[in-house]
């Protein structure tokens, strides 16, 4: 099998570009969902908020000023083809250097502290990134950068449900998590749900669900139905834009699943704010 050599300096370069793009160029599917939200929102305050959010996205795109001041934790997913041979700086260093350059060059906020519970000193360059690598078939490297805001991350949750809780238990956990979050995660939110796997696997599934195009559905119709029903149920809570009351609480609910242990039914909800930011590149 022919191997393809990829220099990790190229990964650095791409990540520096993606950092700026993620914060200033909100995706078309998101803008479309927000416009649809504005069409159906009944609350005058809610409509006002959605109009401000759309105007903000336009200003950000036109002026390249970050759409939100919380330019996030850089969470980087790398899908590395198994026929790729990496050369150059060691991969985590290359990734962190890309984040460092991208956040500096694009005037993005540095929001990472060095130690979580004691010193909490800002690292001043938004590193380290959280890095996940998957080995996949092929000879390409796919880089996905998500800039994950702290406000929505804070309202996320994992539950080790009992198998007896079943799909209804999952449904209740998701809705309860959204209700408890209220206005804190900056609704209208995007709801990523992981079901199955282990404790950490289901949390990762929930995060990966947030990378899907908004409104896309699980390939298994039973879970696609759950996604549709959860969206209706969440939008019936009345939480609305910014939690101040309204019809549009969530723009999309996306569920990812994985087999699990006979004893377990893990479920995770990773919330994302309306400024869902992720960009990808393929080398």
């Amino acid at each position: 099998m022919a191997k393809r050599t990829v220099n990790t300096n190229l990964i650095t370069e791409k990540l520096a570009e993606l950092s700026g793009a993620a914060s200033c160029e909100l995706d078309d599917d998101l803008i479309g969902a927000l416009k649809e939200g504005l069409r159906i929102e009944e609350s005058p305050v809610g409509r006002q908020i959605l109009e401000q959010i759309l105007e903000n996205a336009k200003i950000s795109r036109d002026t390249r000023l970050a759409s939100c001041q919380d330019t996030g934790f850089a969470v980087v997913f790398l899908e590395i083809g198994q026929d790729v041979c990496l050369e150059g700086p060691v991969l985590p260093d290359a990734v962190n250097e890309g984040v460092r350059q991208g956040y500096e060059k694009n005037y993005l906020r540095k929001s990472i502290v060095d130690d979580p519970a004691i010193t909490r000193k800002n690292t001043r360059d938004n590193t380290p990134a959280v890095i996940y690598t998957d080995i996949v078939p092929g000879d390409k490297v796919k880089i996905i950068l998500t800039a994950k805001g702290g406000g929505s991350e804070n309202m996320s949750a994992v539950a080790m449900l009992k198998p007896a809780d079943g799909i209804e238990g999952v449904r209740k956990f998701v809705v309860d998590t959204v209700k408890k979050a209220g206005g804190n995660p900056c609704p209208p939110i995007i709801v990523g749900v992981g079901v199955g796997g282990t404790f950490e696997k289901c949390a990762l599934l929930a995060k990966k669900a947030l990378l899907r195009p908004l409104g896309s559905h699980h390939p298994d119709e039973r879970y696609a139905k759950l996604e549709r029903e959860l969206l209706v149920e969440i939008n019936a809570t009345g939480i609305g834009p910014q939690g101040l009351g309204g019809r549009v609480t969530a723009l999309s609910v996306m569920v990812e699943t994985f087999p699990c242990h006979i004893a377990s039914l893990p479920a995770a909800v990773n919330l994302n704010c309306h400024a869902s930011r992720h960009k990808e590149a393929i080398i």
Binding site: I49, Q52, I53, E55, N56, I59, S60, T63, L65, A66, S67, C68, Q69, G149, G151, G183, C186, Q242, L244, C273, H274, A275
Partner: peptide
């Protein structure tokens, strides 16, 4: 007061 979260570019004006 609530300001609109995620509207940082607009508020900057």
């Amino acid at each position: 007061f609530a300001a609109v979260g995620g509207a940082g570019a607009l508020i900057a004006r």
